[in-house]
Design a protein around this nucleic acid. Structure first.
Lengths: 193, 193
DNA sequence: CGTCTATTTGAATGTACTCAAAAGCGGTGG
DNA sequence: CCACCGCTTTTGAGTACATTCAAATAGACG
């Protein structure tokens, strides 16, 4: 189990001694996912928070017309779960699946609660993580309200050039909130300018 | 300074003794805002987190075409600030102003840091607050991706009937991401069916 | 009362979608 | 290794949702 990435991330926000570090790591369980394998499906309870060591996952929903909408992508160093399901222990509304063969480490709600109790500093760590997630969602909403599909697409490939290479156009369009057909048209228009 | 609302909110998540309660309250400064008065404008640093005792505020931005987009409304019992500006001490990108005569209590970043240090339980409280905010933003994004303007409008008035009564149609449209003209048309259509 | 802003209404326009068909691409099995 | 299958992407035509522009009406505030 490769813990460099997560310990590095934690070190940027809180300081742990070696006992705390060992305890923290002991609470995680590693898991491998094959491409296209589900980590979560609607109706299940999301009972772990998942830290991505390697690979790529997405959180998405399917609307009443059967169209997929991607809420977020996660790659190396990101946390991913259905937060609402995790926190309330209610059935998930989102799908989470792997876009590549993926390696994650999982902490259960029970273990996380134990962690908060034994090492309260982690309240701080997860507060900061979720604050940052909140801010980036807020930016996304602002942008969805202010910008055309073309502007949003250009901004996406500018901000996430490496991620975009790992995704299909269909996935990008499902994140931007447009149809794959329309994204294809946008790209043609942009290359013809 | 009326502290019932905030103490009640805190009590739902963490337990304080009377010393902690007194210390907590001592860190706040009350502030009154007249209708249309700004709490924050782009370029300023948002150096307080603000808890609303009474009244109504909105966070919004103005895009390059001069159109307003409302990111969130806040009423009694909500926290409101430009989080990114607050956390990074960088100039704000959002406006915050009062939609009614409003009463808030403010905690500065310095005092909040002091609070986290002296009473670490508050890391937990604010973690929970922001988790909930994160979840509702995620829901909003999912909905913006999945639904038409009409569906979003109907959902808004269903979920926030009391809030809607306090807002103008223009404000509702700026939150939903449609023009006031189109919202007016939607409403006519809905009342004619 | 007068002014300013919000709302309504209608017509023309534009952005993004649906439907349909063809071409491209990747994975799988014979 | 090639052929086939399924899924993604491209392309075009027609359509729908939402916008812009303009003007009239209504409503709020000083």
């Amino acid at each position: 189990m490769n813990t460099d990435l997560i310990l590095n991330s934690i070190n940027q926000h809180i300081k742990l001694d070696s006992t705390e570090t060992d305890f923290f790591i002991s609470l995680f369980v590693p898991k491998q996912l094959k491409r296209k394998e589900f980590l979560l499906q609607p109706g299940e309870i999301c009972d772990t928070e998942n830290f991505i060591i390697k690979g790529c996952l997405r959180v998405y929903s399917i609307d009443t017309d059967g169209v997929e909408h991607i809420i977020m992508f996660g790659t190396e160093g990101w946390w991913i779960c259905d937060f609402y399901s995790f926190l309330t222990k209610t059935p998930a509304t989102y799908y989470i699946d792997a876009l590549e063969d993926t390696e994650i480490i999982q902490i259960s709600k029970e273990n996380l609660d134990k962690l908060y109790e034994r090492v309260p500093k982690f309240e701080r760590f997860f507060r900061i993580i979720i604050q940052n997630a909140f801010i980036s969602l807020q930016n996304r909403i602002t942008q969805n309200l202010s910008c055309t599909a073309e502007e949003r697409y250009l901004d996406f490939i500018k901000k996430h050039p490496k991620l975009e290479q790992r995704l299909t156009q269909k996935q990008v369009s499902a994140y931007l909130g447009i149809t794959p057909v329309f994204l294809s048209m946008l790209r043609r228009r942009l290359s013809n300018n």
